[in-house]
Amino acid sequence: MLTIKNLKAGINGKEILKGIDIFVKEGEVHAIMGPNGSGKSTLAAVLAGRELFKVTEGEVSYFGKNLLEMKPENRARAGIFLGFQYPIEIPGVSMVNFMRAAVNEHRKFRGLNPLSSSDFLKLMREKKELVEIDSKLTNRSVNEGFSGGEKKKNEIFQMAMLEPKLAILDETDSGLDIDALRVVANGVNKLKTKENSTIVITHYQRLLDYIVPDFVHVLYKGRIVKSAGKELAFELEEKGYDWIKKELGEE
């Protein structure tokens, strides 16, 4: 569903991604690991269409379409979901309103009528149970005053509501205690089907104990320097990123 070819992108003239190639098929889970500053979050942002980053070269096709030409909201409607590393607070906008606007935009894109209030609330209740999110959170303004863990759970809740084809989870595990991590990972696993795919961006192998990847890519200085099966994650955890540096002939 997703083909990234020689993707180069940067910010303010500084190149961060220096030629990325990734192929994601339906039903696959890909993990992207790498040290700080390697370009993991930039890759996520570029895929979601954040204009802050400029693509300088390369192609991204999503179900045969040129993703880079699509507006961010259309990428979202076409099934791309980004779980934010730092979810944004929107004071005054209730989660209910926010989610309803989002769900109905997705439905409109697929040629469906908006959900009635009661159907929408029913959907919310179901998804809340599925991802074990505290009911009270959805009565508050979007992410406002949420703890770090609550924000991350809220991302998974939104993912459950929007049922993306491709979910990109940017450091969803950072700042989570072990219980929250389990809740978040369970949520992701429950939402997994044969059709949808997930790209998990993470620092640590820890999350991959719960969300088992089919492929692990190591991103370093803007390039994928190593790709393998899930065993690569264990190797990395054991040997550290220095091992990669050494393999690359760096000190």
Binding site: G49, P72, A76, I90, P91, G92, A101, E105, F109, L162
Partner: peptide
């Protein structure tokens, strides 16, 4: 903020609707 607009965009909400949502909330 640009980040608030992008967050809404990423959930499928257009920029104009996002501003409407935020202003109405305000």
């Amino acid at each position: 903020g640009e980040d608030q607009i992008f967050y809404c965009n990423q959930r499928g909400i257009s920029t104009e609707d996002a501003v409407g949502l935020i202003v109405n909330g305000y």
